[in-house]
Simulated scan of single mutants.
Amino acid sequence: MTLTHAEGPMPDGSRGQIWGALRSEPTPVPGGLLGNTPAGGPHNPLMSLTLQPEYGGRSDFYSDGNNLGLFTVRYRAVGPLLPQGCVIGADAPLELRLQRLGNSRWISKNPPVIAFDAKDDTFAVPAATGCGPLERLVNNRLGLPAPQGNTMALSATYTFMTYDQLPNR
Score class of each variant (00 low, 15 high):
M1D: 11
T2L: 15
T4I: 09
H5D: 06
H5Y: 15
A6T: 08
G8P: 02
G8M: 10
P9C: 09
P11C: 06
P11G: 05
G20C: 09
A21S: 15
S24M: 11
E25Y: 06
P26Q: 13
P26V: 08
V29G: 04
L33Y: 09
L34E: 14
L34H: 10
N36I: 14
A39I: 08
A39G: 04
G40W: 09
G40A: 09
G41H: 05
G41W: 02
G41P: 00
G41Q: 04
H43Q: 12
H43F: 04
N44I: 03
N44K: 00
N44R: 01
P45N: 09
L46C: 00
M47P: 00
S48G: 13
S48V: 02
L49P: 00
L49T: 02
T50L: 03
L51F: 03
P53M: 09
P53W: 04
P53H: 11
P53E: 09
E54M: 10
Y55G: 14
Y55C: 13
R58Y: 07
S59V: 02
D60M: 04
D60Q: 05
F61W: 10
F61C: 03
Y62C: 01
S63Y: 02
S63T: 12
N66E: 09
N67Q: 12
L68W: 03
L68V: 03
L70E: 07
L70Q: 06
V73D: 01
Y75C: 03
V78A: 14
G79C: 10
G79L: 07
G79Y: 03
P80R: 12
P80V: 11
P80G: 14
G85I: 00
G85Q: 13
G85D: 15
G85K: 08
D91V: 06
A92W: 00
L94R: 01
E95D: 11
L96K: 01
L98G: 01
Q99C: 01
Q99N: 07
Q99P: 01
L101P: 00
G102N: 11
N103D: 15
S104M: 12
W106H: 11
W106S: 13
I107E: 11
I107K: 12
S108I: 13
K109L: 12
I114Q: 02
F116A: 08
D117G: 08
D117A: 14
K119C: 08
K119S: 14
D121T: 07
T122M: 05
A127S: 13
G130R: 05
G130M: 08
G130V: 06
G132L: 03
P133Y: 08
R136G: 07
R136M: 07
L137C: 01
L137D: 03
V138I: 14
R141Y: 05
G143W: 05
L144Y: 02
Q148P: 08
Q148N: 09
Q148S: 12
G149Y: 12
N150H: 05
N150A: 05
M152L: 15
L154A: 14
S155T: 15
S155Q: 15
A156H: 01
A156M: 10
A156V: 12
T159P: 02
M161R: 13
T162K: 10
D164N: 15
Q165N: 15
L166H: 08
L166E: 09
R169T: 08
R169I: 05
